[in-house]
Design a protein around this nucleic acid. Structure first.
Lengths: 215, 215
DNA sequence: AGCAGTACGTTACTTGCGGTAACACCAGTC
DNA sequence: GACTGGTGTTACCGCAAGTAACGTACTGCT
């Protein structure tokens, strides 16, 4: 009588299957980069293409599902560092370090998250710049902005200010981390310290260099 | 008789040809986004694919040539703002505003520059994270770092610090700009002011919010 | 039992793009 | 006239995304 009463036989496999597929996709993507083919992923999962399409719609869907998993994981660890009971400078440094440690530990994951390899949504004729550059950055920016708004007293227009700062700080962290990961010009601790110093206004405090260029 | 005297209808200096092709490519890319096909570009230029390949090698080559043009232009205008004779805060605000005005004026160009749409170099098995995320960011970061090192007195370890700050600030500008361009949550002037405030240490100065969350 | 529905799975196909080979035309040069 | 080097072309290959059509097993319903 109960239509929706799928006994354990079929319901579990549905969601569990999806997990298996995602894990297989994960392996392939982490091995071959964002240009892993659907065929390769299907082969790794021991099945064929159409099944992937039934589960995820299109390649973008699969990648989005994959990205969401990793993004959630990273955001969770960042939240932990961000919410720790310590003074602000400590929290900032801890969060920076957590992020950098993550991308250092799994550069392939990081690379994948930051490069969705063109979702190609083609939404209309317009060129909505947004959402193309990795949703991970946006999510981190929004969350950080929220935390700032909650915990820091910014006077009037606090909300707008906090969001701007959230996205700005996340961008700073991201770009510096990306560059650092590529060139390794210094230790992680030094990088963390320098970035925190930057946020602490040391650029504004520093003196002009004596004998500037042509001036 | 004269070698340089070609009949007007054909046989142009070949470098000018390249320019024409680049301009055609520009039009198409700015219209169709980074996924513009070589066929489309060739059609826009009034010729066919193989010619493009003779000139630029592969799609990556064409896109690199295109990106270089725009990147050079943007960097030039940023340098102007950065080198203006004014106090530091003024220069910072002016540079931020110049950048934001540029991406606001030509979001398609901006989008293209930040999303080379996977060059797919496939260099070996490794995953060199670098250089995938738009060389524009790297170049801006390096230049800014250099300017900081030249004009600001940072004491010991100045060089490393300056480069870190350069990339960090550029990343801040980029991420905030990207987000702002997508959501338009405030005016450009407000954004500039907030970001400059952030760099001026206002995050560090601000008081804790009274009655924090659950604590 | 027999029938529909549905999720799982396959093979085989279409479409479109990056890239290339082979060929054709047109100048000036020996 | 034959040779060379630039312009251009058409026609093709390989490969990946995405789809259609078909087959199969298990379910509950009558």
């Amino acid at each position: 009588m109960d239509i929706a009463h799928r006994t354990t036989d079929q319901q579990k496999p549905a969601e569990q299957r999806r997990r298996e597929l995602l894990e297989a996709a994960d392996r392939v993507v982490l091995r071959d980069g964002p240009k892993a083919s659907m065929n390769a992923i299907a082969a790794e999962a021991g099945i064929t293409k159409p099944i992937l399409y039934r589960h995820f719609g299109d390649k973008g869907g699969l990648y989005r599902a994959l990205a969401t998993r990793h993004t959630d994981a990273l955001l969770a660890s960042l939240r932990a560092a961000l919410d720790a009971p310590a003074d602000r400078r400590r929290r900032v440094e801890s969060t920076l370090d957590t992020y950098l440690a993550s991308i250092e530990a799994m550069p392939q994951v990081y690379r994948f998250l930051m490069h969705p390899a063109e979702e190609s949504h083609q939404s209309e004729q317009g060129f909505d710049v947004g959402r193309h550059s990795a949703p991970l950055l946006r999510r981190m920016g929004e969350e950080l902005g929220q935390v700032i708004a909650e915990r820091v007293d910014l006077g009037p227009a606090a909300e707008a200010q906090a969001r701007i700062w959230g996205h700005g700080i996340v961008g700073m962290m991201h770009a510096a981390g990306d560059w650092w990961l590529g060139e390794r010009p210094c230790s992680r601790a030094e990088l963390v310290r320098s970035l925190a110093d930057l946020l602490w206004g040391r650029l504004a405090e520093a003196e002009d260099r004596p004998g500037g260029p042509g001036f």
